[in-house]
Structures are given as structure tokens and as C-alpha cells.
Design a protein around this nucleic acid. Structure first.
Length: 461
RNA sequence: GGCGGCGUAGCCAAGUGGUAAGGCCGAGGUCUGCAAAACCUCUAUCCCCAGUUCGAAUCUGGGCGCCGCCUCCA
């Protein structure tokens, strides 16, 4: 097996991947808080880690991939109040929307999708233990985690506790002993969803759910814990604090974080009203194209989203797809000369080397284009392109299937062929224009007959 | 203020010491009745300055510009 290297936020370095248990990978990905539809930022994160998960599987690892749903939270309650619906209706609606979006992006299902609300008793158990160990304290109906009680606090985000307090914008809550302390258990206000606990009715704080689900689904120390760059602090830092104070063991060996999607160099945010949902994108391009667009850049670098970029991706991706479709494997004709065969083997090796170098899909895709030239020149090796792309979650079967055209279109094609055969070129050209303008179909003449292609429109704006 | 990241052709984007992948767009060519597709050719010395080195986009120092985190956030 080729050595795999990945960027670990914890060490700040690229490290060789060595799983805790040979041949197996325990992988936890922070999922969505289900109070709204997913946007491009979500798409990027989930495409990135889906690709990583697929590649680990390709390398032969048995990957247990867990992704949670945060289905209890302030924002959900707020949303429920706004639209005057029960919390459950909100969460089930957006969970369904989540799966629709992910299917469009060809994201594989996780091994399991634990819901926070199903782990409340486990969270209470953890909180009790943290209180016993002196890492948490009861303050009214709340329970807070004592940040100064964990000497390694800040090791993931490289923050120094004193600096955090000095520049703190956190409300100095009366119940907190230290401004950096965070809530493990929140007492319920009237009308809010709540669960009974030793500290009265209430609900869990945000971070504790992941600690509980990681522990119960995967164990005390896992191989990979992943999420968006914005989760490094405070979410993952707090998870580490809770879990490591509880078990005395490292929570995760490797921490992976994807870079942000920005719009016109600004982070997407509700206040700037520049959030673009996945559904919005899918009105313009297929999920495959969006996936390709995201994979064209390395997952850790910032990505400046633009419709122009999306259009470019559409054109580039179409070329790859056409190359596969136009060059069906022919097993009777002779293979090209050895130097070309060697080049192909070489490109395939480079593809995998790039993927093993912190999942550099951008570089890897570059080799696919070089391969494309060889395929179009020789008519061979289309399977290598197809299989490599499919490792990245591209070229799903439906994309590679032939377009279906109406009888009307097929009749026009036949008419054009007849006109051409009789050298009535004015007529054949008229029909061709009609196909393009009226039916959105282009026609390509090849030695073995005409090839039809549906025009994919992407509107830049 | 603290921490982190980024600045490579018109645009997108790889490349972390050995002389700039790849894509989109554009130009010219081959093929074609003409096209389309495909193929071929062409388009950068890497934000600026100084330094280390036989050699730097890549390392060091100093600038300039942009962004993120430090508050909910993929």
C-alpha cells in the first residue's frame, strides 16, 4: 500500500497516516445542524470528506464513517418558533433536504447518522463524570465545563487561554467561573424541548453531543475527526477538552479541516445575505459538475465561488465525460505502442501519488486531462479515466448513459443524413441549425455516423 | 491585539530547493462539403525588496495586499 500523508491540524504538519488498528479507520465527521438548507460551504466539506472516505476505502481500509445530525440547538428552536412548527417537523424536513442534496452530489451514505437527541442519556452520563472529576460544575440549572481545569486547552487551535480571555467577546455570564467556560447542560426555558437530568429539565450544549457520539459509535480514541475550518475553535477544541478530561486519552489522532468557500472574497453569512444554497446551484448545473468544481481545488485552500468558475468546470467536465462516451473500449484493435502504454501507467501512478499526498484532487485531476489526450488520440484506456474519476465520486452511471432523444429529433437527424448524402448542404445545414436552436442538440459527424449531444447550458451571472 | 492561511498567465489552479502540471477562454493549424468534436502549435519566470544557496515560485528577513478564526457557523 502506498504511504498516505495528510495534513493534521493538531500538529500543524503533514503526517504519514498510520491507523490505530491495522486496516481499519474510524472516521467522525461533524454533520449539520438541521435548521436550514445546505449551502455551497456544506457541499464543499461533505464532498471533500466523502472523497477522502472513498479514497481510504480504495486503499483497502475498512472505514467506519460516522456523521451526526445536530437536531437540538438554539437555532432550531428559534426557527421552529419563527415558522410556528414543532421542532421535530423542522429537523425532519431539513434532514430530508440534506439527503436530497447529498444524493445529487453523489455522496455515499455514512456508516451511521447518529442524532444528538438519541444520545442525551449518554451525554448526561459524561457530564456527571466530568463533574465528579472536577472538570465541570453546576451553576444554577446549567452545568459548565471548567476550561482552566484542562491544561492542554488550545492545543488544536493554537490559542493561548490568557489571550482568549483578554480579547474575549464572550458574554461574561454570571454563572461562569471563567469567561471561557462553556455550557455542557442548559436549563430549559418554558416551552423549549427538554430532557430530565440530575440538574433539572434542560438540554445539552452544542459540543457535548459529539463527544458522546464519538465515544459510543467509535470509541475513546479515533483515527480521523473532520469538519470545516470554522469548527476548529471553539467546537473541536471544546470536544477535545471534554473527551480527554473524561477518558484521559487523545480524542483523535488526525484532525482534518477543509477550507472555506467565499463569495467575492467574503465569507458566506446570513447577515451579508450572500449564502448560495446547493439547490440554487443545481438549477444551473448537475451535481456531478458541482462536485467536479469543488474537487478541482485542493480541499484545504480557500475557494472563491463564482458562476464563471462553475461554467468553466462545466466545460472541462464535459470534455472528460465526452472522452469516456466517445471512446468505448474496443478489445479487438491493437494496443498503441509501448511508450504510450508506459505513459498511461505513469499517469495512473501519478494520480494515486497525488491522492496519497493529502488527497490532492486538484493535481490528480490534472493527470486525468493528460490521459484524456491519449484516449482521444488512441481510442484506448478509457477505463482508466473512468475508474479514476469514479474513485473521486465523478462519472456516476447516469452521467455516462446516452442521452435519449425524441422521435422528432431522430427524424430530423435522419432527414439531414439524407440531404447530406445527396449533397444538399443548404438543407442539411438548416436542419442542423434547427436541432441546435430549437431542440438544444448538437450534432457531430464521425466516420461511423452522426453523434448527438444535448447542449448543457450554464448561465453565468 | 493574538493565532492561522493566501498572493503563480485574461480567468481558475497544481507545484515546498533543480530551472513553471492541468483546465477554461483566445489565436493559428490538421481533419470536415461547411461545422462540431478531437488532435497539433502558441500565451507566465511565480506581489515587491533584501538575503541564504552552485541553483528559489519553493528557505530566511522585511514590506504591501487579501482572507479566515478569536461569537453561531462546513
Amino acid at each position: 500500500m502506498m504511504d498516505l500523508f495528510l495534513s493534521n491540524t493538531l500538529s500543524g504538519k503533514k503526517e504519514r497516516f498510520v491507523p490505530i488498528q491495522e486496516g481499519k479507520v474510524s472516521f467522525y465527521l461533524c454533520g449539520v445542524t438541521v435548521y436550514d438548507v445546505c449551502h455551497i460551504g456544506h457541499a464543499r466539506a461533505y464532498v471533500a470528506f466523502d472523497t477522502i472516505r472513498r479514497y481510504l476505502t480504495h486503499l483497502g481500509y475498512q472505514v467506519k464513517f460516522i456523521q451526526n445530525f445536530t437536531d437540538i440547538d438554539d437555532k432550531i428552536i428559534k426557527k421552529a418558533n419563527e415558522v410556528d412548527l414543532p421542532v421535530n417537523d423542522i429537523t425532519s424536513k431539513y434532514i430530508e433536504a440534506y439527503f436530497n442534496d447529498m444524493r445529487a452530489l453523489n455522496i455515499k451514505d455514512a456508516t451511521a447518522y447518529p442524532h444528538a437527541t438519541h444520545y442525551v442519556s449518554q451525554m448526561i452520563e459524561i457530564i456527571e463524570k466530568l463533574i465528579d472529576k472536577g472538570h465541570a460544575y453546576v451553576a444554577g440549572g446549567d452545568v459548565c465545563f471548567s476550561v482552566p481545569s484542562f491544561k492542554d486547552y488550545g492545543k488544536l487551535s493554537k490559542k493561548i487561554l490568557e489571550d482568549l480571555i483578554a480579547g474575549s467577546r464572550v458574554d461574561i455570564s454570571h454563572s461562569k467561573q471563567n469567561p471561557m467556560d462553556f455550557v455542557l447542560w442548559k436549563s430549559a426555558k418554558p416551552g423549549e424541548p427538554s430532557w430530565p437530568s440530575p440538574w433539572g429539565d434542560g438540554r445539552p450544549g452544542w459540543h457535548i453531543e459529539c463527544s458522546a457520539m464519538v465515544l459510543h459509535e467509535l470509541g475513546e480514541t479515533i483515527d480521523i475527526h473532520a469538519g470545516g475550518a470554522d469548527l476548529v475553535f471553539p467546537h473541536h477544541e471544546n470536544e477535545i477538552a471534554q473527551s480527554e478530561c473524561l477518558t484521559g486519552k487523545p480524542l483523535a489522532k488526525y484532525w482534518l479541516h477543509n477550507g472555506f468557500v467565499t463569495i467575492q472574497s467574503e465569507k458566506m453569512s446570513k447577515s451579508l445575505k450572500n449564502i448560495i444554497s446547493i439547490q440554487e446551484i443545481l438549477k444551473r448545473v448537475s451535481g456531478d459538475v458541482l462536485r467536479f468544481y469543488l474537487l478541482k481545488a485542493h480541499y484545504k485552500t480557500p475557494l472563491h465561488f463564482s458562476y464563471e468558475g462553475l461554467e468553466e468546470a462545466q466545460n472541462a467536465y464535459q470534455r472528460l465525460v465526452d472522452t469516456i462516451k466517445n471512446n468505448p473500449e474496443s478489445n479487438h484493435s491493437q494496443l498503441p505502442e509501448e511508450s504510450i502504454q508506459k505513459e498511461v501507467v505513469d499517469l495512473e501512478a501519478k494520480f494515486h501519488k497525488a491522492m496519497c499526498d493529502d488527497f490532492n484532487s486538484a493535481e490528480a485531476i490534472g493527470y486525468l486531462f493528460e490521459l484524456t489526450k491519449i484516449i482521444n488520440s488512441t481510442g484506448h484506456f478509457h477505463n482508466i479515466l473512468k475508474n479514476s474519476g469514479q474513485l473521486l465520486g465523478l462519472f456516476s452511471q447516469s452521467i455516462l448513459e446516452d442521452d435519449v432523444f425524441s422521435k422528432e429529433v431522430l427524424q430530423l437527424v435522419e432527414d439531414r443524413a439524407k440531404a447530406k448524402a445527396q449533397k444538399e448542404f443548404a438543407k442539411s445545414d438548416t436542419i442542423r441549425n434547427q436541432l441546435i436552436e430549437v431542440h438544444g442538440v448538437t450534432i457531430e459527424d464521425t466516420p461511423s455516423g452522426s453523434r448527438l449531444k444535448r447542449i448543457r447550458r450554464t448561465t453565468a451571472s
